[in-house]
Design a protein around this nucleic acid. Structure first.
Lengths: 157, 157
DNA sequence: CCATGATCGACAACCAGGTTTACTATATGG
DNA sequence: CCATATAGTAAACCTGGTTGTCGATCATGG
């Protein structure tokens, strides 16, 4: 019964693994010319997605205010990752869509995540990796698609 | 071979589990009167530890500049979590140590992490949990004690 | 013994990314 | 037709990073 490791070892290992995958993605992105993207931007690009979004919707997905989402969109627009166009059906809305550069980020991220998963399958063997995924799913049921890490981590409140 | 889930599912599950543990800790901390602590502070308290530290050392552990560490220390001092005392052996240094309130945060965090681990052992069974820990250790060898999440997540360079 | 260089902590100016409050313009439903 | 709700923007502010600079203190080599 004696657990020699301190209690925060498991959370730290979870975070380390998450971080290793994200670092791999951003290493690849940096090599592909996307130098200035930070880990947090991964959540933003996922939240925008190939279908596009709006400032309010993005804010809700990221767990931040619509104003913060608007600032993020403006910054990504300056960097050429998204473009805004008026919504033909609602003059209040501005549709935010990924440019080719933005889609490149999303595509490369997906490929690198897949590559990392393949490496992990190589290390553990496919069975243990699938078991690990299933166990994680049991521990955090339903929480998969939450992208509100920016609001979660920041100072806010 | 066909993996239907998108590649970022596994990293997201890792992050979700990490986050569930940290949220449990901060829920308990909030109930114990430590209302305003953010997830990031967990790393700071761990980096200070029961043995204390200095601004330079804390900056190195957290992966931020010594100035940022100094600001963090000043903020925690205002909130009563740490106290500074001149180092008798080196008049340049100021020893930073946790107050009783700071030690309370550390103790409660450890207890809550242990409680979460026990809950997870209950969900998966002890064998699967230990296997999960071992697998995570295989995936991220040696990366356990890195506490530089603040610098990793933030905007910086 | 002291001059030089390294180190520690602080301050200032700045930046990124959050917040709240307030506002305009546009939809929408009674 | 008007009242209300919603989308986006702007301003002022906060936190927590950054770099550059600086005075004070230690450590070392001549």
């Amino acid at each position: 019964m004696g657990e020699s490791a301190p209690g925060h070892e498991l959370p730290l290992r979870l975070f380390a693994a998450f971080r290793a995958a994200v670092d791999a993605v951003h290493d690849d992105l940096a090599r592909a010319g996307h130098e200035h993207l930070r880990p947090m931007h991964g959540f933003v690009f996922q939240a925008i997605g190939t279908r596009g979004t709006t400032a309010v919707e993005l804010g809700a997905r990221l767990g931040v205010s619509k104003q913060a989402a608007g600032k993020t969109i403006a910054a990504l627009e300056r960097q050429g990752y998204v473009e805004r166009a008026p919504d033909p059906h609602d003059a209040r809305r501005k549709a935010v869509r990924l440019t080719d550069a933005g889609r490149d980020v999303l595509d490369r991220s997906a490929r690198t995540f897949a590559r990392v998963r393949a490496q992990w399958a190589d290390t553990l063997g496919p069975d243990r990796l699938e078991r690990l995924e299933a166990d994680l799913a049991d521990l955090t049921p339903g929480e998969i698609w939450r992208l509100d890490a920016p609001g979660w981590f920041g100072p806010e409140r």
